[in-house]
Amino acid sequence: MTAPLRIGFIPLVDAAALIVAVDKGFAAAEGLEVELVREVSWSNVRDKLNIGLFDAAHLLAPVAIASSLGLGHVKVPIAAPFNLGINGNAITVSPALHAALMEEIDGDRFDPLATAKALAKVVAKRRKAGADPLTFGMTFPFSTHNYQLRFWMAAAGVDPDEDVRLVVLPPPYMVDSLANGHVDAFCVGAPWNSVAVDLGIGHILHFVSDILERVAEKVLAVRQVWADKNPDVVASLVRAAVKAAEFIEQPENLAEATQLLARPERIGVDAEVIQRTLTGRLKISPDGTFRESGRYLLVGREGAGRPDPVQAAWLYAQMVRWGQTALSGEALKTAMAVFRPDLYDAALERVGDGHASPPFSAFAGPTFDPRDVAGYLASFAVGRRVP
């Protein structure tokens, strides 16, 4: 048995593999003693990981990259040997904004380009009327939520820095902020979109898989220097997470997994809400309308657990697009090196895992090619590039 590990997490369903690895005993079977520490904000998780109060963490994939590049905080190189989740976010809007969008929409309401164009019309009407800009909540400046909202809006010419307000809110506070009218919409991970719908205060407008087919959301993150000193522990953690993800993805284990996740000290919401997330069948409106997607959240299937450096490159490209950093070949190389398929493969004693990385595709713009980030970014009309 190694020394006890302290691992931080945020109460979100994409922490499932980490929680189940500990609570179902997969970590113990690997010789690990783990204390899971529930946190509220991503800045807390990042800071405690960076200074060594956490040995590992459930972390936003872009934060791992930003930390390695020294963006927005001190520079602490991070290694991500396992993807905790692919996709899993959704955009939820207030009943008033939903009604306004549906009034303006021309086309399929599940088509993100149609809703983005409707948003552009709503924004223009509000400006003409002298109304305050719409306010959208997202979880962190370096987050998929931020980039997903921006990608969606900008496709219809809505400038996320000029035409609306984007504000940072911890995931568990999103619902209250929508209920109190502090935000008109938010992008957050499960279960908080479903909680808003169940309370009758929100409509899920889009699953992020409508916007980006497959995007790395959360990673199991460790400091690079710690990984170098503790390769066997890293391998054990990866194996435990893989076994947990495989357990979660088996339909016969769904009830047990959701009960583990629902406990107050873990995610702390009704098990039925978590089950909806894991099965990809979500109630999207207070009237009881349901929508289903096999790509809503990937925990272990379709090679989701194996880190893909192309995903890291796309996230870095978003940082460049929105003015968080300048484009640099060296920085791109550093960003891609954060995602560690080599550590994943070594832990499982595999040469690859049999899943070819699919091309990175979205509802708008060209197919992403990490060999030509500049060309990719030049194709977009709206952005905030650093000169």
Rank of each mutant, 00 (worst) to 15 (best):
S361F: 01
A64H: 00
N230F: 06
A241H: 09
L332T: 00
E35A: 11
H145L: 03
A15N: 08
L315A: 04
W226T: 03
S328I: 01
D132C: 01
H73F: 11
L84M: 11
A57L: 06
L298T: 03
W152L: 10
H206D: 11
N50P: 01
A235W: 08
D47G: 00
Q324M: 15
N89D: 13
T289Y: 03
L237C: 15
G85S: 13
P251N: 14
R109G: 08
D287S: 15
A129S: 08
P341V: 01
A3W: 02
L134K: 09
N193F: 06
P341S: 05
Q311P: 10
R126L: 05
N180Y: 02
G375K: 12
K128P: 07
S143C: 13
A271D: 10
D159E: 08
R385I: 14
D198L: 13
G52V: 01
T277L: 10
A221S: 11
R350L: 15
A15P: 09
E272M: 11
R214W: 10
N89A: 09
A356G: 11
G365D: 04
Q275C: 06
I105T: 08
D14F: 05
V195E: 06
L260C: 06
D108L: 08
L149A: 12
A241R: 00
D163M: 07
A57Y: 06
A131S: 13
F380I: 02
S143F: 05
D270E: 15
F110N: 13
G52M: 05
D372Q: 08
L278M: 13
F110G: 07
G52W: 07
V20H: 08
V219C: 01
Y147C: 03
